[in-house]
Design a protein around this nucleic acid. Structure first.
Lengths: 141, 141
DNA sequence: TACACAATGATAATCATTCTTATTTAGGAA
DNA sequence: TTCCTAAATAAGAATGATTATCATTGTGTA
């Protein structure tokens, strides 16, 4: 696994440093989707000479080079919405624009699906779709 | 609209203050899902005597009393994931635990749905499900 | 082996958010 | 209407995560 990671670094033209390897290993070991902070804590335990700034830098550069992905959570939420009905979101990463997307037919489809295909060991309470893409116009509806 | 908001405040036992009304109006006016910062900027323009701390307080208390909702975005992302394949997430708000959820059948269902039901003025690039609920066990699989 | 430049360490700076405390105000009671 | 009390607010300090700075170190190539 290490070897593959080292190869990937080289493919991307990134130097293979012990810090990068250690940080990647930390994420794999902390396989429950660690936060940057989780990684920093782990690194402090196991590689106390790696500095905090480096962890952030490495994480960023690995994400930039698609050796790592970022994932969002329910917490640490940033936007406020005066519309209270249940709705999904259309999101354009380029322009940072968000629009609401209400679609009862889709909700039913998904609910039926999970009714028929239960997830093992998990009770579903709510499902939100984040639909990423591009808007065709620049005018707000 | 204002009147309804004032009534809602009273129902919740919250005092009707000019600050709360102004901040609510700001969110309605900035209807493209403002960030706290967006609201603060707007307030600074239109109600320069309302302090930044108050904006945060009011936003929080309105969310707590379900007069406002929070919405997440792609940016401001906090978690790192070494699994690069396309997958959704099961999320438990209580324990902050995240598990990957891979389901090709579901992906196909959703893709087919959007194939048949295009969204007006929007080109879909990626769809992510955030499935919130509760895990039945505490043991990591 | 030497060199150039990318990467790192240490720490300062930043920026959004939260906290603190004194002051003000909304809204019920007299 | 006026008074009173708890709730709400203003101002600014404090916090905490992230980013920037810059001198030093290390990787990988010639």
């Amino acid at each position: 696994m290490d070897i593959i990671f080292r190869e990937k670094l080289q493919e991307k033209g990134l130097k293979v440093t012990p810090q990068r390897v250690a940080i990647y290993e930390a994420i794999v070991k902390l396989n429950n989707h660690p936060t940057a902070e989780n990684v920093i804590d782990y690194i402090k335990e196991n590689h106390p000479n790696i500095s905090v700034g480096t962890v952030y830098n490495v994480l960023d550069s690995l994400v930039e080079n698609t050796l790592l992905k970022k994932v969002k959570t329910e917490k640490d939420i940033m936007r406020y919405d005066a519309i209270l009905s249940n709705h999904h979101h259309l999101y354009c990463a380029e322009t940072d624009r968000i629009e609401d997307y209400v679609d009862e037919k889709l909700n039913n489809l998904i609910n039926e699906y999970f009714e028929a295909n239960k997830i093992k060991n998990f009770k579903v309470q709510d499902i939100k779709l984040q639909i990423t893409g591009k808007f065709n116009n620049n005018i707000k509806s």
